[in-house]
Design a protein around this nucleic acid. Sequence first.
DNA 1: GTCTATACCTTGATAGAC
DNA 2: GTCTATCAAGGTATAGAC
Lengths: 193, 193
Amino acid sequence: MGTKGSANRQRIVQAADRLFYARGYNQTSFSDISDETGIPRGNFYYYFKTKDDILDAVVSSRLEFFKQILAECDQASDDPRVRLKLFIEAPLGQEEQVIKYGCPIGTLGSELVKDQDHEIAKEKLTVVFDLIKDWMIEQFNGMGLTNKAEDYAIDLLAKMQGFTIIASVYSDVKYLRRATRDTKDWIDQLPVN
Amino acid sequence: MGTKGSANRQRIVQAADRLFYARGYNQTSFSDISDETGIPRGNFYYYFKTKDDILDAVVSSRLEFFKQILAECDQASDDPRVRLKLFIEAPLGQEEQVIKYGCPIGTLGSELVKDQDHEIAKEKLTVVFDLIKDWMIEQFNGMGLTNKAEDYAIDLLAKMQGFTIIASVYSDVKYLRRATRDTKDWIDQLPVN
DNA sequence: GTCTATACCTTGATAGAC
DNA sequence: GTCTATCAAGGTATAGAC
């Protein structure tokens, strides 16, 4: 097994993923990751040259996470409407976390846009947004809304980002639940071309 | 003039406000604020007991900022639709900043929800959100949409948060401009009860 | 009120033994 | 591959002269 897939490396990435989500990248120290994994601080540098490299690995991990969610939506149904609604209600499965820490890619984006460095991670993060956006475009295309598909996709992505922020700032699931329901209704009310 | 309004204190708050917005709270050090104001680091503790107190003052400053924007919308017209559309297009006046650093209250919220402390600042931040939300409710009430006013207000707030994130993650004003236009159109298309 | 000097801690990162 | 010891830098905060 190569270095990239070593058990210790995986444990570091998984712990960092959780901690970056719960505390933010800048507020997570090597000591924090060390405490969670039991791997000594100094040992990290055998697997990663810099903290930035850990961030890159975490963003890649989140990309895979969303690929999996989208794949599950695809497998569950052939109907684009059903697929979209499944994705819309996905955050409800992580209610507590979403309320406490927001969206795993939205809040990371908000944090990274204020940083000068992390160029690779920032680029990778837009890849995650593109993944979701392009998948949404496919679904709207499948509904026959070809000339508005991209705008609808951006609107849906923005909608989900928006009510996630509101719910987390107010620490209240009611905003998440109501917006999820209304957004699904919005999908149902779209015309079929 | 009391301590609260001293010139040095004001300069510290103004510089901190800019820096917290551009770099984030956690990534702004006393040295940064010292560099911008010319006031020595150690001197800050005459005006503020902790860094947290500076944060509290900054959030209060942003509350006043939004009060002023809403007051301008109120003064510009008596028509609730016009007022809402004026507020919706307000971010366009700060295009570059919004693209680079996101929303001054949304990104701060995303940062603070991940922190254990800053309870006072977090509470104050929801006051800012409430200020805007309640103002929006008033406008929707003025349009006769009384039974849906709160949901509309939350949706509008979420919408604006959402497309601000998308625009900043992609570093592209086109998302901000298109969403601003469409959101204003949405206001115009709402029924009058 | 203003400023300098500094205490004390934590950070990311390195060196080198095993 | 794994671990300890440690570095240099930077963080918040304090003490005390002026």
